[in-house]
Amino acid sequence: MVNKSKLQQFILKLLPHRLWVQVGFLLVWLDPLAMRMHTMCSPVFHCYACPLATFACPIGVIAQFSALHMFPFIAIGLLLIVAGTLGSIICGWVCPFGLLQDLAAKVPIKRFKIPRWMGYFRYVMLFGAVILVPYFFGEESALFICRICPAGFLEKAVPDMATAAVKGNPIPWPNAIKITIIVVFLAAIFVTIRPWCRILCPLGAIFGFFNRFSFFSMKLEDHSCTQCGKCRTLCQYGGTPDKAANTDNCLRCLECTKCGPGVLQTSTIFEAETEEPTKEKSPKE
């Protein structure tokens, strides 16, 4: 048994309440004080067109700036600070779009596994729909991120349609592409876990990439690992924390830190950096 750090002891106390932490952060993102601070980006995936959005979406801002051929210093700077400090812990504990998918994952039905290689589509989305398509084709392009984003549909189009229906006005139906995307998205969040975050989220691509460099880090006491494979069972996102604890596909829900011997712990890069295993292992049956 490995001694647990104070940070890890705190995380273990907080872990059973992760969903409530995510719900608590909604008070930050859903603009309960109607402040509408859209001069600043948030570090989460939440559409700025939503009537309940405190801050601007960093991905939308980067895409719009790219379309206007400007460099978004504020958005990129903020993401570097947050990603460099926390990595994808934002995805696991803070993002409202992640919370929506986690809630859908509570429905007890059989889930399909997502192959790890599909996580690379996040980078295609980031460089394609967020940077290159806006830069070369402008915001009118059908592949501009905001035109294909399910968050935009759920957080802006749906409230608009509901409002129009309540007022008795003609309902502003989105085009067929958006409807198809949202139908696929809604089906996907019930048949697999966090499909958007793990396959397509461009913000998750940034945070995930910085997992290996972020100040907050996962520490694996390799010499104490019994290779029981419990961490793989605990990871509902299909990760292999015993193989590499700071990979780009990790959403840092930190569930794996509940593994029995306590060989996986939260830490900082200044403590954890030397603890990464050097060779691939497979868990014992």
Partner: peptide, 27 residues
């Protein structure tokens, strides 16, 4: 180590970009 240097560099770069964008970048 190399990783720690990268972390500090990234944080410094991010902070510099954020402060520049917030206080000096004007178009």
């Amino acid at each position: 180590s190399k990783k720690q240097t990268i972390t500090i560099f990234l944080l410094g770069l991010g902070l510099s970009m954020f402060l520049y964008g917030f206080s000096m970048h004007v178009l």
